[in-house]
Amino acid sequence: MPASERSPYDVLGITPAATPPEVHAAYERALAEAGGTAAREDCTTAYLHLRNTGRRLGADILEFAAPDPATTAREAFAGVADEPFLTPDAPAPPIAGLVVLRRTDSTADHQEPPPTKSTFAIPTRFTPTAEVLPPVDIPH
């Protein structure tokens, strides 16, 4: 990976779908536009990564891999432990603010007829219809 921690694709200004001739052309273009020694080294390192099939696959895996969940969670909750959630002198939130179930949904659940016999019946408002299917383009 280049010293600037940028993706080799970003350094050369190409997409992951670029062919080897496109990678070479992008490398030549990036070298011509590079201002300093560090930029030229970044271009060369990116080109060497993308020219080699194994290194290119490794760069693709590193770039598009999911982030580490432990690190992501640690960053997301970094300041949570610093401040207390509820202080003794803070008033409790109102109960109405804590209710998330809508009255209409609750009423609709109770208006459904109970299941008959010993089989489970799916409420009619949850039965699948054609409206839940995504649109599909049919090739001609």
Results as ranks from 00 to 15, higher is better:
Thr53Val: 11
Leu98His: 01
Val100Ala: 05
Leu31Ile: 11
Ala39Lys: 04
Ala70Cys: 01
Pro113His: 06
Leu62Ala: 14
Pro114Ser: 04
Ala92Ser: 15
Asp105Thr: 01
Thr104Lys: 11
Pro91Met: 15
Phe64His: 08
Thr107Asn: 06
Ala121Tyr: 10
Arg55Gln: 08
Ala90Thr: 15
Pro84Val: 09
Pro69His: 04
Pro93Val: 14
Thr87His: 05
Pro123Leu: 01
Pro93Met: 14
Pro84Ala: 08
Ala96His: 13
Glu41Ala: 09
Ala25Phe: 12
Ala96Phe: 12
Pro115Trp: 01
Arg103Met: 07
Pro84Glu: 08
Leu57Asn: 08
Ala73Ser: 02
Pro128Met: 09
Ala76Tyr: 04
Val99His: 03
Thr104Ala: 13
Pro84Phe: 06
Val23Glu: 11
Arg51Met: 05
Ala121Thr: 13
Glu112Met: 08
Ala32Gly: 10
Val11Thr: 09
Arg74Glu: 05
Asp60Gly: 04
Ala46Cys: 04
Arg55Cys: 11
Thr107Met: 08
Ala108Pro: 02
Thr72Arg: 03
His110Pro: 02
Pro94Leu: 15
Pro16Ser: 10
Cys43Val: 02
Arg125Pro: 00
Leu98Gly: 01
Ala38Val: 03
Pro88Lys: 14
Val23Ile: 15
Ala26Cys: 14
Glu28His: 14
Gln111Met: 12
Thr119Asn: 05
Arg56Phe: 08
Arg40Ala: 07
Gly36Ser: 02
Leu57Tyr: 09
Glu63Ile: 05
Ala59Met: 12
Pro114Gln: 06
Ala90Ile: 15
Ala39Thr: 03
Ser118Lys: 06
Leu12Ile: 12
Ile61Pro: 07
Ser118Trp: 01
Pro91Cys: 15
Ala65Gln: 03
Arg56Lys: 10
Thr45Arg: 01
Pro21Tyr: 11
Glu63Met: 05
Leu31Asn: 07
Arg51Leu: 07
His110Glu: 08
Ala18Lys: 03
Phe126Lys: 02
Pro21Phe: 12
Ile14Ala: 11
Asp82Met: 11
Ala76His: 07
Thr19His: 10
Pro94Asn: 11
Leu57Ser: 09
Ser106Tyr: 12
Thr72Trp: 02
Arg40Lys: 08
Thr119Pro: 00
Thr116Tyr: 02
Asp82Gln: 14
Gly36Trp: 00
Arg56Ala: 09
Arg56Val: 07
Ala17Gln: 12
Tyr47Gln: 02
Ala108Asn: 06
Ile14Glu: 05
Arg40Glu: 02
Leu62Arg: 14
Ala70Ile: 04
Thr129Val: 13
Arg102Ala: 14
Gly35Glu: 02
Ala26His: 13
Pro84Ile: 05
Ala39Asp: 07
Val99Lys: 05
Ala39Arg: 05
Phe77Arg: 03
Lys117Phe: 07
Pro67His: 10
Glu41Ile: 04
Pro88Cys: 11
Ala32Thr: 08
Thr124Cys: 00
Asp109Gly: 06
Thr44Lys: 06
Pro21Met: 08
Ala39Leu: 07
Ala17Leu: 14
Asp89Ile: 11
Pro21Gln: 11
Val23Met: 13
Asp89Leu: 09
Phe64Ile: 03
Arg102His: 13
Ala30Val: 11
Arg55Leu: 11
Thr104Tyr: 04
Ala18Asn: 03
Ala34Tyr: 01
Thr53Asn: 12
Thr116Ile: 00
Thr104Asp: 12
Leu48Met: 03
